[in-house]
Nucleic acid binder design. Sequence first.
DNA 1: ACAGCCATGTAACTTGTTACATGATTTT
DNA 2: AAAATCATGTAACAAGTTACATGGCTGT
Lengths: 196, 196
Amino acid sequence: MSVRQSLLAILDQGPCYGYQLRAEFERRTGGSWPLNVGQIYQTLERLERDGLVAKSDAASEGRAYYEITDAGREAVASWFSSPVMRGTAARDELAVKLAVAVTLPGVDVTGVIARERAAVRQLRDRLVTDARADAPRDAAELASALLGAARIAQLDAELRWLERAEELLAQASVPPLPLSTEVPKRGRPARAVATD
Amino acid sequence: MSVRQSLLAILDQGPCYGYQLRAEFERRTGGSWPLNVGQIYQTLERLERDGLVAKSDAASEGRAYYEITDAGREAVASWFSSPVMRGTAARDELAVKLAVAVTLPGVDVTGVIARERAAVRQLRDRLVTDARADAPRDAAELASALLGAARIAQLDAELRWLERAEELLAQASVPPLPLSTEVPKRGRPARAVATD
DNA sequence: ACAGCCATGTAACTTGTTACATGATTTT
DNA sequence: AAAATCATGTAACAAGTTACATGGCTGT
């Protein structure tokens, strides 16, 4: 929902047209997260469908301006006033991959961890090198610095976690789980223990 | 791609039918990431479309078994032998939200950070409390512990980053960016400097 | 005239996800 | 018979993303 909500928040500042929205978004995210222009129009179409924006009447010079609606303003306020949704599940690709790997027979988990770690460290080092140390001069530079710091922090966390995973794996050497051989009955299963 | 690849990796262990796949996946992810059964069949259909699995001939007792193909085995090997894809962009909802927030006039960034931080800390504390300290007895428990640790590590990173963001924001008090007023020309822009 | 960008829009696709229909099987 | 679960499958949708068609405008 990030793109959708971000575009809406920008439109909260005033009417915009497609190309302008892309420029504003990319300016405010420091060039990370580049957007295909088509995605802007797709998102605008969906925002309009949901009643959060509307095509402006005053279309100047062949540009299709969109303006936010009252419902859209509410959505922006709600976005900024409530924390980001975190589902109960951990939709972390790396974590799930490793979790599945340790349960499967025949997977070289140590190798998997080593490769992931090398990739993470390399990327992390590159980002740290590229990160400029001088203080941000405007809000866009500040935003850029924040995004960079977030990326690095996340990679650091992954590095530490991967090291911890290596430890756990070395200590608790547990047998992997083959496919469950027991074929359960098809109908309604018996009551767990008793009716009581 | 996690679900898709995980199911394929499980099928690499032997033919499975839909319900069985769900059980195997959830067993191996410790109940986090619960799957709607329909998603299993959707994913199987797409895997079959891509030639990575095939319907098994020996359909026993009305169960539709799927088995992995050679291409599927290659995909599994490739998944485990190469690190997870990390796009150039930082598709981090929280980070982008804050980045956009600091560039927009009229947003109470301090409040946003405070609320996000409170939510993260609360969730983190709950997870730490729920985390069992005893050593895992089988691979499923190890996987579960790994997933829990990954979640906590990620939340820790977010906490630290949010604190850093507060600092940066307090130090470098930069003015927010209003919408760009300059309307660029529509046609081809002039050459940057010179042909040389 | 032509290259090249601005600008809009549409079609299609990906993974993830839910809701629903349908039936078989088994316990109560 | 009714309830509950196993089991398969289909339809639809969300959000992100890309590719393409089409035209207008401007500098060379």
